[in-house]
Every structure is written in structure tokens, then in C-alpha cells.
Amino acid sequence: MNLSKADVLHVARLSALALTEAEADRMTGEISAILNYVEGLSVVDIPDESQDGAALSPTLLATDTPSPSLSPEGALAGAPDRSGSFFRVPRILEEGR
């Protein structure tokens, strides 16, 4: 299947990626070519009794046991920007709201 540039820009937004115009043009062609290849899967017959890969290896869950974790200072040690014990990011809410 061939994606349009609008499709790629939509997926880029879902992926939180700001593609440049040139990147979006190039990725549109490249991703379409890869999709056309992987679509070769459509010829595979899936027998009714077949399970999917996920069912063969169900997600294992850890028991909920409290244990020590990263300290606040440790978690903040690599922060690109911080304020006291918080990560600082651009304002999310308008002033006064």
C-alpha cells in the first residue's frame, strides 16, 4: 500500500516527530516501499487453530513487592532542565487558568 504525504505527517504527529518537508517527502516513498514489501504476508494462510505470537508468550507479571527505587536526586541528575525537585518543561497551561 502506498501512503500519501498526509498519511506520513499524521503518523509523525502520533509519533511526536516533527519531520521537515524534505524528510516527509523522502519517508513517504521509503515507508510505502517497505509496506509494499511487508504486505507479502497477505498470501499466508492462517490455519484456524493457530495462535498468534502473543498468545504463545503471554506477558508475565511481576509480583507487587515494594523495593527501593531511584532516589529523587538520582532521577533528576540527568535532567536537561530542572527546578528544585521537578523537571522543568515549557508551560502547559495559560497564565491564570
Partner: peptide, 9 residues
């Protein structure tokens, strides 16, 4: 989903 089924095969 289709890929996961073929993976099982």
C-alpha cells in the same frame, strides 16, 4: 496482528 500470527507459524 497478521505478523504475530505468521510469527507463530
Amino acid at each position: 496482528r497478521k505478523a504475530r500470527k505468521v510469527q507463530a507459524l
